[in-house]
Design a binder for these strands. Structure first.
Lengths: 347, 347
DNA sequence: TGACGAGATTGGAACGTTCCAATTATTAGT
DNA sequence: ACTAATAATTGGAACGTTCCAATCTCGTCA
């Protein structure tokens, strides 16, 4: 069954031309006569020829592969990021190598090594927790274009594309304050990540400018997952002075917070305001629809891919650090429902 | 910056051995003396050598790549499936090529072609909607091991691994009937897929064996997403005789149904019983925790990968069709909460 | 001492493609 | 009709590895 490989030489023989001509046809060169091109293409189809990229890569020392390594594919934020990357990478004629590190830096080392061995021409990395510049040093020295997404690493010397976490948190908390909230919690996330710190900074700045004290008791970390959100809100509700609103580390945490609230017979959006971060697709269809800071993961993936492609084309490009703007999308979970209900009553 | 490639020949020169010896070291052959092995390894480290898999693949006509193509990475079921595959594939020393087709068969054709060009040694495919045996024919003729997951394709002549959809639906509906429900809907999913049909078959069989009529008005299709669930339940509640319970096509639909219920001030689990299908990670932490038919996507990914690896190792294996058992996980959303509340009151 | 075999090592061919320089075929200009 | 320019085609080398058969180096045994 496993038939002989048909090669460019077989095609050449069958079409009565040389292998060089076949090669030219394969890469769509304008040098070859229309008639021969047609003939060669016909033979290619007939013999069921499959191009051997390994051989091509070997000769021209560049592949059409780009690698993307994410720290948690299970989180739909990263899944969406990956489909964004996939979309633009595909249409540029590249193919995507995707690996999931599950936040383990050992695994990350392995997959990056493996990708280099396969000769990827660029890499998009959302680094695992605790990744340091030194971990990436051999990679960047090799001259392979790299763009870091979501999480930046100081001193890595490569391009990065992160969202404006501080500004997003600032806007969200200002919104809550404008609605009259005074005890506002920050829930979820690992405190040792740069993303967490940036978001908390925005949170604190907003409180400060409103003259509210940003006590540490209201910043409660947890795993950045739905389950983490449940535990975080439980902890928050144990406090002497309970918060009335929360900005969550991400949407997954926010959903968990809603779950935890309901478990205590509190209705998110009515009895307690919750704002998420990321704007994953489910945010708009959830009930109540989640107010969140939109970072458009898919769009981010697209932009990261474009940036990488640009660098690949340019050969050697200066690293750029892009911070992607972010906007607050106000939906129901932050208390819009309360106002509406008041209006309904008064009318 | 972009330094010269260091090759096996450079290593050989620096270590004072031949390239053949270096090659032997690279593949961990026992033929080479311990002392030379150590020396070669040291030089490899010093020079920062990167193995060139393209060259190796070219020579030995087999790669360490397996491809996985999924129809919707945005759906966390498939994301989890992918991480399951990734886990076993990685530890077998393979690397994973992941592509997302977004249900478009054109895209699917492209990515499969691309994977073949890269010389993948096996393929795990969750086919896009509407894929036919003919679409896969050239692939399977080439002798590359293929395993189909989630969705089987009649007459494709390759291995498949699907879950026991009929049995799962049967168990779920029996459970609802045992709880006293008489008007039970089947919500969500595209009616033209084999998975949908199998699940509906189980649903109908359960109703029939209880002597209930399985009227078509209670089977309501929709997109298999959260948003689809919202529209499906809305449609169901328009019926003259409203259902009191629903089996949903998958968990995403089930979550949407819960959302839709809440939008009508109905509490899922208390006022209406809902059962999902798949058991994605969020199912157990949601509120109310989702009763669902557990298919363990990650485990399925692992099993699919193992099956594929087995076939790759065996060279040529008879296609096997595995149907993976499934079990009903009873949590709150199907009405457990009602009973518990009754008990609380009476005690 | 010579033959033998096991343990290590080696040079060259091969994998399927692309690139280069060279060649042939075709057309245009004088 | 001859040259120049252009269009189309070509053979061979090269890419970095693995495989094969051959070689070399010992120590052992008769």
């Amino acid at each position: 069954m496993a038939k002989e490989r048909v090669t460019v030489i077989d095609i050449a023989r069958a079409a009565g031309v040389s292998k060089s001509t076949v090669s030219l046809v394969l890469q769509g060169s304008s040098l070859v006569n229309e008639a021969t091109r047609a003939k060669v293409n016909a033979v290619i189809r007939d013999l069921g020829y499959v191009y051997n990229r390994s051989a091509a890569n070997l000769r021209q020392a560049k592949s059409k592969i780009i690698g993307i390594v994410v720290n948690d594919l299970t989180n739909s934020f990263f899944a969406e990021l990956a489909v964004g990357v996939d979309a633009v990478v595909q249409s540029a004629g590249f193919v995507q190598f995707l690996a999931n590190t599950g936040e383990k830096s050992e695994r990350q080392r392995e997959v990056i090594a493996s990708m280099r061995e396969h000769g990827v021409s660029g890499l998009i990395i959302s680094p695992a927790r605790g990744t340091e510049a030194a971990d990436l040093a051999p990679l960047v020295e090799s001259g392979i274009p790299v763009v870091l997404v979501v999480r930046d690493i100081a001193g890595a010397g490569v391009s990065s594309l992160i969202s404006d976490n501080r500004a997003g948190a600032l806007a969200a908390v200002r919104h809550l304050i404008a609605r009259g909230h005074r005890r506002i919690a920050f829930l979820g996330g690992f405190a040792d990540t740069a993303v967490f710190q940036a978001r908390v900074r925005g949170y604190r700045d907003a409180l400060r400018e409103a003259g509210l004290n940003a006590g540490d008791d209201l910043v409660i970390g947890s795993a950045p997952s739905r389950a983490g959100g449940v535990t975080a809100i439980e902890q928050a509700m144990m406090l002497e002075e309970r918060p009335t609103a929360a900005l969550c580390f991400n949407d997954a945490v926010a959903f968990g917070v809603c779950d935890g609230l309901r478990a205590r017979r509190l209705e998110p959006g009515a009895d307690f305001a919750v704002i998420g971060f990321d704007d994953v697709i489910e945010a708009k269809t959830a009930v109540p629809a989640l107010t969140t800071v939109s970072v458009d993961p898919q769009g981010m993936g697209e932009r990261a891919a474009e940036l990488l492609l640009k660098q690949i084309k340019a050969g050697r490009a200066e690293p750029e650090a892009i911070v992607s703007p972010v906007r607050l999308v106000v939906r129901q979970s932050c208390g819009a429902a309360i106002e509406r209900r008041l209006k309904e009553v008064s009318s």
